[in-house]
Design a protein around this nucleic acid. Structure first.
Lengths: 234, 234
DNA sequence: CTGGATCCCTCACGATACTG
DNA sequence: CAGTATCGTGAGGGATCCAG
């Protein structure tokens, strides 16, 4: 049952055999946030067929990346979580989010937004040096996805769902990307209605400094311009 | 022309759209070493069908990861090379090599060994802290793959092909992995014939310290115990 | 309602052959 | 040498169905 081997003794090849199948790394992405049930994963990956999700979970379990666990008594629900080995992928996934983020461009009309994507995306955007001694908690509503984070000591921790003592509550949608990519300022974001804030609104400026996606540098051209299509000649 | 979208606005998804197709990341891996011609890539990826290689190169070019370039006059050969954006993947690929390396286990009978895999694998194994003030040049023959590296100032540089002033020439095969994973010592490697050395043979010990793959830590169990093998059941 | 299994269809992938 | 052309196969996609 190794029908499609790459036939090379190489760590990259092994990685691709483990998490290179379609959807596999997105399952890992969503599990980085924490253990999830089958249905949670389905919801986070709206376009994945259930048989594929089944197959991927089985493969990831057999290869030691994911663990299947039956919750103790009252619930006795099945959850999937990363093994220690699987958790070592977090850094790589975050870097992929940062790299791919540079080429995101404008969202397509059918693009959805999932909780796992939000949290991993914000992890990718987090700039420790910019955090300094900031100490603040945020609650973020991105369409119907609600997450929260606490920034302290130059680090950040994420969680799902709301917070009851958030310093700032941010309600927004995908136009949050304009703020993250530095295409608008915090003030503009509020003024244009891209975000609505409740709480200590000066904290939105700090938010925009601390969560900042590398926009161009290298990578694809600034605004919605198509990624570099250079040589046409052959 | 976006036939299989994941339908999410997410950096990880974008990364997978760019380099997540089968073989794509291995093309990138081989191009990390330097520009390559079509035939070089074919040779480094013996099992890739030419039409697939064509397709991947075309896609990678269209998405701005790879550049196609026609060499100046006398040669007028076509080479493929990473764009600046594509080169930003190097760190990620090296980390994948390190992560997947932990689960490599024993080589299969059909596993080949390619130049790109060797160089990226050694990059993954390089431990800067262990290099200290070592200054040495190595020429490594792994089966019929010949690469070289110069260690200096706590860094290393790789190149393809031989070196005419190598401090140490190492001739070996896949059993080099035993040395990299710390399952045998440099002395044992020489004694058992796993490697043959020419030159300042004490430099092999330094080599074994400086190029060291993280074997267990977390990850799959210690010795050949249980490398997450591809299970056949079900 | 969760946690899948089963069916069928399609297209990307893979093997081989062939060309400028 | 650097690819294109052709064609078969099986993994992925989508809908539906089923057990606990």
């Amino acid at each position: 049952m190794a029908p499609r081997s790459y036939g090379q003794y190489c760590g990259v090849v092994r990685s691709l055999e483990l998490v290179g199948e379609r959807w596999a790394l997105l399952v890992v992405r969503d599990l980085i946030v924490g253990p999830k049930r089958f249905t949670d994963l389905r919801q986070g990956l709206p376009k994945i067929p259930t048989n594929i999700l089944s197959a991927r979970l089985k493969e990831l379990e057999e290869t030691g990346v994911v663990q299947r666990r039956v919750l103790p008594r009252p619930a006795s629900a099945v959850v999937y979580e990363l093994t220690d080995y699987g958790r070592e992928l977090e850094d790589i996934v975050v870097r992929l989010a940062r790299w791919g983020g540079k080429a995101l461009g404008e969202p397509g009309p059918d693009d959805t937004i999932a909780r796992g994507a939000v949290i991993v995306g914000l992890k990718a955007a987090f700039v420790p040096e910019a955090a300094g001694d900031l100490e603040a908690s945020y609650e973020l509503h991105l369409d119907d996805v609600v997450v929260h984070m606490r920034v302290a000591g130059g680090a950040v921790e994420f969680g799902e769902g709301p917070l009851d003592d958030a310093d700032l509550v941010i309600e927004t949608d995908l136009s949050l990307r304009l703020l993250l990519f530095g295409q608008i300022t915090a003030a503009e974001a509020i003024r244009t209605g891209a975000v609505k804030v409740t709480g200590k609104r000066v904290l939105l400026e700090r938010f925009a400094e601390v969560f900042r996606m590398p926009s161009t540098g290298t990578g694809c051209a600034g605004l919605g311009a198509r990624p570099p299509a250079l040589s046409t000649e052959r």
